[in-house]
Design a binder for these strands. Sequence first.
DNA 1: TCCCTCCTTGTTTTT
DNA 2: CAAGGAGGGA
Length: 772
Amino acid sequence: MTDPFDLAVSPAPAPPQPPSPPSAPAFAGGVAPVADGIAQLNEMQRRAVETVDGPVLVLAGAGTGKTRVLTTRLAHILASGRARPWQMLAVTFTNKAAREMRERVAGLLGCSVDGWWVGTFHAIAARMLRTHAERVALKANFTILDTDDQLRLLKQILEARGVDLKRNPPRLLSSLIQRWKDRGLKPEKVTEAEGADALDGLALGVYADYQERLQVLNAADFGDLLLHTLTLLLAEADVLERYQRQFRYILVDEYQDTNVAQYLWLRALASGHRNICCVGDDDQSIYSWRGAEVGNILRFERDFPGAAVIRLECNYRSTPHILAAASGLISHNRGRLGKTLWTPEGEGEKVAVRGVWDGEDEARMVCEEIEAQHGKGQALSGVAVLVRAGFQTREFEERLIVTGIPYRIVGGARFYERQEIRDAIAYLRLVVQEDDDLAFERIVNVPKRGLGTASLRTIHVLAGQAGLSLAAASARLVLTDELKPQARRSLARLLDDLERWRRGLATASPPDLARAVLDESGYTEMLRADRSPEAGGRLENLKELVSTIAEFDGIGGFLEHVSLVMDNDEAAGDDKVSVMTLHAAKGLEFDTVFLPGWEEGIFPNQRALDEGGAAALEEERRLAYVGLTRARKRAIISHALNRMVFGYWQNAVPSRFVGELPDGATDYVAAPGLFGGRAPSLDAIGRMAGPDASPASAPWHDAPRRSAPLLDGVPYKVQTRAEPATSFATGQRIFHQKFGYGQILEVSGDKLQIAFDKAGTKTIIHSFVEPA
DNA sequence: TCCCTCCTTGTTTTT
DNA sequence: CAAGGAGGGA
């Protein structure tokens, strides 16, 4: 196995940067509020803010004011005149966190933060990459692929290799490739042994093909944003130097969630002045499945010797009982740095643990409790239902509707991932960049234009042979008789439309143009004609999309936003109950938190356990810890005894986590009639769900999937047909697949006038013809 | 080419 | 149980 850290940057032992000359503070108006802000901090927080130079690692437990420290620190550095705004780099993990940081800094300093380097890893990487795209053989206007594009591309590659898609689903390949990228490994960096291991070497080959295709398409996926930027920094000394010099201070949020690529990226940038401050909590590391390395926390002190380590342990959020429950639970984990959270608050309610009959009962119990709380004056916006996996939201949603409690599903099917939105975006992408083959494929027959697989194949063949984009190949094909008249006509129409819209880029306002595209393409009409229940909502979504575009400078800016900010920042202002996954809840807090589905198999999730073993169990436990620590006043855990899984009723064992909660902090109540009216002993639960308990694996986990025998397929090439055209002369006899034999009447460029013996006279591109 | 039906197959978590 | 894909018929 490769040690990814071998990629090390030469540590460029830059001279310790002298403290910047105390220039006039850039934010005269902001200095006083910043001083105020600092004055309100506790001692540890203040140290974390004021230890400005050199490497700093802040271990911040849940609810200890992490975000506050981060934003105050940023503001403090600026207000003290050590750096100008563009000399600060602040990276977060999620868009939500980035947004919050921007808002709070803007509030603190009383100025706009537009254009500052505050954002997610991906957004910042994209920004750097656009500036230096040509260094990694991309053009500055490269497309950022979404998951859907990625899968389609992989599917094409697999098909071209003749691989059985059922045994090697694109999703699996995608995640393997993604994992390599997370570790900062380009195809040539993956070691032989590891490459050969993954799907008998298939995966590595596909990875290489995939990267090649992305290059040709002038596209990058999410992983590439980081990977290419890393390449940039490691291979282009001048680029590295430029950014090292520019970013005098670096702040990193949610540091425990960084993956290897991100870590190397940070280390490269910080290796000169070493002014890097990372804030994280090992107990809240819940993204290892995405390549996050908690080890980065430990590595930090090694790579930045002399780093100041500051612990924030005073919790301002939760009651002692909630804190005790969370601490007790997390203490079952072995691999942790260890923190002791304490709170100045008084007693409060114990954590409620409820046993119920089944999922329906659970939803009913939750809704009744919400109504009761609401009756006592609890705002609904202070209530959250946190589930392990997305599909669990459904039964709550149903019950909430019946009960009439306003709610919002956070993060569910994200706005920009909906089909109609993607289609619309594909149209816009194609208007902006006609070479975008993936967008072309997506919309060429949506709405139906009679351009099915056969026509598309023809287009592909020509595109491959002539090295053209699909749109360019289509433009040539419509001048010939290669396609059926009907297909040819509608393809021509589509190309005309695109051309006209493209001209509109200069003249029409972005929203007007988008509306025109949707109407004139027939997309809107298609939805109107659709009688299915979703159609109405889809039209609504498109309207919303069009109005969103108005907020951006142009279509281009909008598309960048769409690719990177895939969440919809729903107005959180309304008084609604939030329903979301535990992952989505990280960084949030609520008065009342419901934690349903604490059952073996669901939480901890069986699949995670099967794949990740003991380490995965600890991550599940951290997830439980994250869930509990979201609660300010009240936490209600529940488990059902019967659960419908895949259409079958299964009886469920309470989660081992229930048994791990410290007795004194919890209050167990079983629904009347369960356990003969008495609570089961928590010991018993612990025993039932203990490490030895291995509940029957769900049916889909039975046997490890066997990989298909390696099909030594044709190496993937854009070209699907071999020979380049031979030259043709007037009068020559030729043969055509579809039209049969004929004689060439005229040669003009790559087009031939041919009199076919049976099919009449037609115009054909020479590559479809062979000498008779 | 498109539509319908049957069948399989699968549910983490997200930039 | 659902959704999505494959395959067959119009």
